[in-house]
């Protein structure tokens, strides 16, 4: 079963390109690596999937449902982590985590406790007191605590120390082993090589599926060099 099915997705920002005719399928149980230089269209694709952007043409189906018509049902089963983790500054970490669970209407206390322990999250601190990396950890807890069927992570490991990065990927593998699926947008080739089962690369708003996630540095960097030359 395909958890994500994107067909001919096109999104423009006025006269500027977003993504052009992107088609993509991610199967259940996959850890899908989504590579590409800055401005290639990775975040545009993800933000279209989440319903933050209204795309021009094409269709997106997630968990067998239409991303526009069934947005609420889809989001109930999605754990999303944006590239920048921002929360309401005046709230405490514990309040943010509880707030995220309450809005979803699920009791996630046990799962949240386990995640905070494994990621070493200090729940008593105020959001404004947290470093960039610690905010990212809170974002991971919010994305994982309700045990979603699909994880969408947009550059999740930026700001995390190597130990936390390892814990993060261990958690992903555990959830995927239990039946979840993960789409991972990243610049870090080693993460894709090590953890992803399939991968695609975006460049200039277009998507190319890779035969294998195990690509070498030279081949990978060629996408970036070509992209810079064209820019």
């Amino acid at each position: 079963m395909n958890v994500i099915e994107i067909e001919h997705l096109t999104k423009t920002y006025g006269k500027n390109r977003g993504v052009t005719d992107v088609s993509l399928k991610v199967e259940e149980g996959d850890i899908f690596g989504f590579l590409g230089p800055n401005g290639a269209g990775k975040s545009t694709t993800i933000r279209s999937m989440m319903g933050f952007l209204k795309f021009n043409s094409g269709s997106i189906r997630i968990l067998g449902m239409d991303s526009v018509k069934d947005r609420e049902k889809i989001l109930a089963n999605v754990g999303y982590m944006p590239s920048e983790a921002w929360f309401y500054d005046s709230m405490k970490v514990s309040e943010v985590i509880a707030y995220a669970a309450d809005i979803r209407g699920v009791d996630c206390r046990d799962e949240a406790e386990m995640l905070c322990e494994r990621l070493k999250v200090n729940k008593n601190k105020k959001i404004r007191e947290l470093s960039y990396g610690n905010k990212k950890k809170v974002s991971i807890v919010c994305a994982m605590q309700h045990k979603p069927k699909l994880f969408i992570f947009d550059e999740p490991t930026g700001g995390l120390d190597p130990l936390m990065q390892r814990s993060f990927f261990e958690l992903i593998n555990e959830y995927v082993d239990k039946g979840a699926t993960c789409l991972l947008s990243t610049h870090v080739l080693s993460e894709v090589n090590k953890y992803c089962r399939t991968a695609a690369i975006m460049r200039e708003g277009k998507l190319t599926m890779l035969d294998s996630p195990e690509i070498d540095d030279d081949e990978f960097l060629k996408f970036y060099e070509d992209s810079e030359e064209e820019a």
């Binding site: 989440m50 319903g51 933050f52 947005r71 609420e72 049902k73 889809i74 989001l75 109930a76 999605v78 999303y80 944006p82 920048e84 983790a85 921002w86 929360f87 309401y88 500054d89 995220a100 809005i103 979803r104 974002s139 919010c142």
Partner: peptide, 14 residues
């Protein structure tokens, strides 16, 4: 403006 939109709008609420 404060970049909290992606947190709020990722919940299953229209």
């Amino acid at each position: 403006e404060l970049h909290t939109g992606e947190f709020l709008f990722s919940f299953p609420v229209s």
